[in-house]
């Protein structure tokens, strides 16, 4: 059974930055699957290297500042591209994957699903535009899961 780790992250009090968190919450409402672990996180931290090293697939969900607001982007994450300095205060997905490989000998396949935010000001609500993209982001994640998961 393949093991999947889903990480929705961002600041739930900074408008659209909560997008990853909200997607993960939606996924948590679905019937649980023992092969899938879903985390809602403020930021990526070093201890995630351990569960990442035990996963076969990692799906990171985040909000992005660059691009057209509301656009959903999907990209493969390459640990080789980790910046050597990218592990100071908070980590990047690339750095965590590279760290998982360095410390525990393996890193999962990993993808990033990001939405470009429209409003990152203080507040617990997503902007209407970005909020309307939740369903599509959830569907994007579900398409990546091996059937009959979730």
């Amino acid at each position: 059974m393949s093991r999947i780790l889903i990480l929705g992250y961002g600041n739930p009090l900074r408008g659209d930055d909560a997008f990853g968190w909200r997607v993960a919450e939606r996924l948590l409402e679905l019937p649980p699957d023992p092969s899938i672990e879903i985390l809602c996180l403020h930021q990526l931290t070093p201890e995630l290297m351990d569960p990442l090293s035990r996963a076969d697939l990692a799906i990171f969900i985040d909000a992005a500042a660059a691009g057209d607001p509301g656009a959903i982007l999907e990209r493969r994450i390459d640990p080789e591209s980790a910046s050597r300095a990218a592990f100071t205060h908070h980590a990047t997905p690339e750095a965590l994957l590279a760290g998982a490989r360095a410390l525990y000998g393996r890193a999962p396949e990993a993808v990033m699903i990001s939405v470009t935010g429209a409003d990152f000001s203080l507040g617990a609500e997503l902007s209407p535009l970005v909020g309307s993209r939740l369903d599509e982001a959830v569907a994007t994640v579900l398409r990546m899961l091996p059937r009959p998961a979730l």
């Binding site: 070093p46 201890e47 300095a85 410390l103």
Partner: peptide, 26 residues
């Protein structure tokens, strides 16, 4: 060398210390 003087360099040089640091945070 700056290429080694970072967290990855530490992980490569002292993997046991780094793993224990991760463990303690966990």
């Amino acid at each position: 060398d700056p290429a080694q003087r970072n967290i990855f360099g530490v992980m490569e040089a002292h993997p046991e210390i780094a793993r224990e640091g991760v463990r303690l945070r966990q």
